[in-house]
């Protein structure tokens, strides 16, 4: 049985890589590797996961320099050299080892008005949204986000501009912009515009390239740019 040489980040912002030898198995994922280390080699290793099937978004790490969801990343794909380097996500404070503090990431969803804001009560009729309506299609293209933070970690603008809301929060806002039932779009547009919002995006596309759900936050952000410019030219882009 062959072995993998795995360098794992230990510590917080400052720390070092620690090397482990992990037996190579068939259909092994990067998360399997980390779990093996924690269960068999060093129980003090801190990492995070929940579903193991690509739904919860909690297992993202930097694998050989790139942000990935580790539960759905096979070692076959990334460890041809027999070597893996596993580190916490970029652009987020490190709590310990492979665990990052996602507070900023999710606070920015709230700041981008990522909460659904309905205008009806349980006494009203259900809204009927045609599956093939243009708005519904736009929402569909962006809705499957699992909140993993891979895009946020891959985005240079997040590193350069700490106030930038980032691809995931803006993508979320775009799905609500296209939700016929939502009534919060006026305030949402103001929240996602400007130097900390969609206009900070340089269209690098790293987010769209790396998103494990094949979402294109870049396209969502472009949609927000168009919508906010139209509102600004109308004089309908308040600061609240």
């Amino acid at each position: 049985m062959s072995t993998l040489c795995v360098a794992v980040w230990r510590g917080q912002e400052s720390g070092r890589f620690q090397e482990f030898d992990v037996p190579r198995r068939e259909s092994q994922t990067v998360l399997d590797v980390v779990t093996y280390i924690q269960r068999s080699l060093d129980p003090t290793l801190a990492y995070r996961f929940a579903c193991r099937v690509g739904m919860c978004g909690s297992c993202a790490m930097t694998v050989n320099g790139r942000a990935r969801w580790t539960c759905r990343t096979h070692v076959d794909k990334v460890g041809e050299s027999g070597r893996l380097e596993i580190a916490p996500l970029h652009n987020l404070p490190v709590v310990r080892d492979l665990v990052t503090d996602m507070t900023d990431f999710f606070d920015k969803w709230a700041r981008a008005r990522g909460q659904f804001q309905g205008g009806t009560t349980r006494k009203d009729e259900f809204a009927r949204v045609a599956p093939d309506s243009p708005a519904r299609r736009l929402a569909d293209a962006a809705i499957e986000c699992i909140g993993c933070g891979v895009c946020y970690s891959a985005c240079d603008v997040v590193a350069w501009n700490p106030a930038y809301l980032g691809p995931a929060a803006l993508n979320r806002a775009w799905t609500l912009m296209n939700d016929a039932r939502d009534t919060g779009n006026r305030a949402r547009l103001a929240a996602v515009a400007g130097d900390a919002g969609c206009h900070a995006c340089h269209t690098h596309m790293s987010c769209s390239e790396r998103c494990p759900k094949q979402i294109a936050p870049t396209a969502s952000i472009a949609g927000l740019k168009r919508a906010t410019i139209a509102a600004a030219l109308r004089g309908d882009l308040g600061d609240g």
Binding site: G197, I229, A232, L237
Partner: peptide
């Protein structure tokens, strides 16, 4: 002391 959001957007558009 920040420019208004509308101004930021108009700058970007310009």
């Amino acid at each position: 002391e920040r420019l208004s959001v509308r101004t930021q957007v108009l700058l970007w558009t310009a």
